[in-house]
């Protein structure tokens, strides 16, 4: 199936599910297509390339909470979550102010649309868990844990 038809099929499916869709073609060529939509307040991007039209990459970006930036917490949390969500890739971007979560699907567009919302849900779970884990690793959480341990030992 040509890339343009895959792209249009995917866009029509997402639209039929109630979501506004933007379709773009990278560099004006037909080699790479991107379909962008929003769900539950989060922007998602699906890319598919002419060279491998049975491979879809779904990505979404999250803001790294500003009070945990400039520490090892974000990258450590992303390493942990990548292990807990096999197949999901994470990368920090824009000087560590955001991270991008990406999940790949191999198969035809019909199979992709059949499982579409489960895939989106899994990616969203991974991203949300990563944000929670970053916050859990913050110094304020560590300080709270320290206080609770001291409190339980009667040291406070």
């Amino acid at each position: 199936m040509p890339l343009s038809r895959i792209r249009d099929t995917l866009a029509a499916f997402i639209q039929s599910e109630g979501h506004r869709v933007e379709v773009s073609v990278a560099d004006g060529s037909e080699a790479l297509a991107e379909v962008v939509f929003r769900a539950r307040g989060q922007m998602f991007s699906v890319t598919v390339a002419e060279i491998d039209a049975a491979h879809f990459s779904i990505s979404t970006a999250y803001e790294v909470p500003d009070w945990v930036r400039d520490r090892s917490g974000p990258s450590d949390a992303l390493d942990d979550i990548a292990r807990e969500y096999p197949g999901t890739r994470f990368s920090l971007a824009h000087d560590g102010t955001i991270f991008v979560a990406t999940l790949d699907y191999a198969g035809d567009v019909e199979g992709f649309t059949e499982h579409f919302w489960q895939i989106i849900g899994r990616l969203r779970d991974a991203g949300n868990t990563a944000v929670e884990r970053m916050v859990d690793r913050s110094e304020s959480k560590a300080a709270a844990d320290k206080f609770i341990r001291q409190f339980l030992r009667g040291q406070r």
Partner: peptide, 16 residues
């Protein structure tokens, strides 16, 4: 889908 009595909006999210 409005009428004389009611104002109505219908929409879908994730197919629901």
């Amino acid at each position: 889908d409005d009428d004389d009595e009611a104002l109505r909006i219908t929409f879908k999210s994730e197919g629901d």
